[in-house]
Design a protein around this nucleic acid. Structure first.
Lengths: 192, 192
DNA sequence: TTCTTAAGACGAGCAACATTGGTTTTAAGA
DNA sequence: TCTTAAAACCAATGTTGCTCGTCTTAAGAA
């Protein structure tokens, strides 16, 4: 096909970039270093990505796909409350296992490195579904948004060590998610 | 006192840096540009800050102080639930009015630019106090953490436009905060 | 008033970085 | 064997954070 078999491709670049991120941190992910790890020169990366931000966006969308997979795998069985708790745990587990890529993908202020919104739909859908079962269709959307905020907020604060340390985050997390759900269920009973 | 009256000082530098941040974005806050806006040269800034990260940390701690003032001003009157709702609204209002500085201070992944934990104690205390009144002392700490997560998470997702647009965020926010509080109150009743 | 002094500002320059343009290398297909 | 075009490279540029040594200036001592 091609008159010059490529030594790399987008997938390989993204994979290596994510490895560098988790193993050595964001600041080590320079184009020079990434290229060197791939056995090529930095300018060659521009064959595959318009610029560094586009590369980062691709990395973040890959992170999004992994997170989606983790969420979906956690929502296989049980009632809606159980599924939500399991998804919430999987969400936090994912962020704790891949803190650098998670932060880069979901806590970055830069607009042009964020995953495209529709690339994250698979993340929202299973949670939305279970939430609708728990709190009812009427409150489904605001309840979902609060849940996403709660998960992302807790994980962000935990990763950036803004909680005072010393207590059991696992139990706190479960309790917080449960409390939030209870609050919406209470509303449901009140309104119906 | 000094044999050479300074043309700038830490406060003036921090103030100008925050102006640049909100008016022109993070990427415009380079040492060269900041210095030029102050009428000095970039190397002179190193008289006042060890490096750029220390400058950013000072900027973020100033942002923290402003946020604390806004929170405290919002918690002056009313019962605990009212105070919490008002503080939550003030928190979001602050972040919406100063999105760049807020994101830099509280959504940044860089550890060494984050405000020192004890610099944010004034932020936590009033919320903690009101939370204790609402959910009881026993659950006070986990409930507080969940509340902080909820506020920060909601604001972060809203600022980074990760909610699908089109609905009333004001009402959603209030409803979400109220639901979370209700959930803990429910637990209190159940346990007592 | 003159002199000493040290803080404050500057100029020059470095290394790391992303990015670009032009050139060379390579292997597939004619 | 020759043509071709993709892939990789080399050289170079502009920007950035940062350092070093030097000069400038006004306060306080003489």
């Amino acid at each position: 096909m091609s008159p010059y078999p490529a030594q790399v491709n987008r997938e390989a670049i993204i994979r290596r970039a994510r490895e560098i991120l988790e193993a050595q941190g964001v600041e080590r992910l320079t184009l020079q270093y990434l290229a060197a790890q791939l056995g090529i020169q930095a300018p060659s990366l521009y064959r595959y990505f318009k610029n560094k931000n586009e590369l980062l966006r691709a990395v973040n969308e890959e992170t999004g796909r992994h997170l989606i997979a983790a969420i979906q795998a956690a929502a296989t069985r049980g009632g809606p409350e159980t599924r939500i708790l399991n998804m919430a745990r999987a969400y936090r587990e994912f962020a704790r296992q891949q803190p650098v890529t998670y932060s880069l993908a979901f806590a970055s202020a830069q607009p042009d490195v964020r995953p495209a919104p529709d690339a994250l739909e698979g993340l929202i859908l299973p949670i939305q579904k279970a939430m609708a079962d728990v709190v009812g269709e009427a409150n489904s959307l605001p309840a979902l948004r609060g849940m996403l905020a709660l998960l992302h907020g807790f994980v962000s604060l935990e990763l950036s060590e803004r909680f005072q340390r010393g207590s059991d985050f696992d139990a706190t997390y479960d309790a917080v998610v449960a409390a939030y759900l209870r609050g919406w269920q209470e509303a449901k009973q009140t309104l119906s």
